[in-house]
Amino acid sequence: MKAMKLLVLAASLTLAACTQPATDAADSARVVNVYSARHYASDDAIFAAFTEQSGIAVNLIAAGGDQLIERVRADGERSPADVIITVDAARLHRAEQAGLFAPSDFSALTATVPANLIDPQGYWVSMAKRARVIAYSSTRVQPGEIETYEDLADPRWRGRVCVRESGNAYNQSLLASIIARSGEAAAEAWAQGIVDNMARPPQGGDTTQIQGIAAGVCDLAVVNHYYYALLANSDDPERQADAAAVSLLFPNQQTSGTHINVSGAGIAVNAPHPDEARALIEFFFSDDAQRMFAEMSNEIPVNVDANWDNPTLAAMLPFVEDDRNVSELGDHNATAQRIFDRVGWQ
């Protein structure tokens, strides 16, 4: 039957067109295979710069962190992954628990990178930071009126807080940091306080929360610092006006420090190209790469010596960070999510 032949032909064409060999031993060119949960332009630029400097080509698959973990786990020994990159420390923790990373000695990095950003067992390192901060209305909230994450749950902010849904990894890690600091009961009371203070049911992304303040729906919002930078650096007057309506507070400066989350990378346990993988990870900490994180993604570089030019970001620094090892965030992620469920944070 004609249809059957067509079917077989189409299937074999597809197979031929996009098959990738599991091993490329015959291939003399050096490559590194990257599985990344990041999809920023900065990363493309970094990979290009890496290839230019080292002659090592970068192959990339970008997908959600949990999906990547499943894929690498299922492919097992024959997985072509060399470097696994995720955003959010809890994802890194999960990949580590799934046995996807090879332990490595990243101690050479500690000269320039704070130790709390490196996994104690050497499974992964953080290459860029993001702070979860409080945006407040420049007109309706006085500077100093709010200082900490804990203040957000205070009844005097009833009906004045905008925050996104609790499925969001950044909210989960923020709560995980409070669990790590104050224990589960206090964290649950805090989450309940936020729910009571919400100006509206959670919706949209972090940008939506800032726009909520600009529109007068709420006076406070919890956002990652770079969403503000994205609005402030935008060419669009509408977005600039949104940014102008709010001020940023880096919370807990007098107490535990501002909660930070990270993007991190580790070498895959079955990496076919471990040397190239290591070379790429080390490159992430170079001046070039750190500059691209800061300038293109508005992320905070982890290399304290790196040079970069981004006035919006520079104006936010320096600030006191929560200096617990970020690997702790993963330990409390599941508890955080259950608390969100119990207090009805949508």
């Binding site: 299937a11 597809t14 197979l15 067109a17 996009c18 098959t19 990738q20 060999p21 599991a22 091993t23 894929r71 299922a74 492919d75 024959r78 997985s79 072509p80």
Partner: peptide, 15 residues
């Protein structure tokens, strides 16, 4: 030898 193609990474898997 092991089967030379990683099934999960093919266009056929996608289709």
């Amino acid at each position: 030898e092991v089967f030379p193609i990683l099934l999960t990474g093919t266009g056929a898997a996608l289709v």
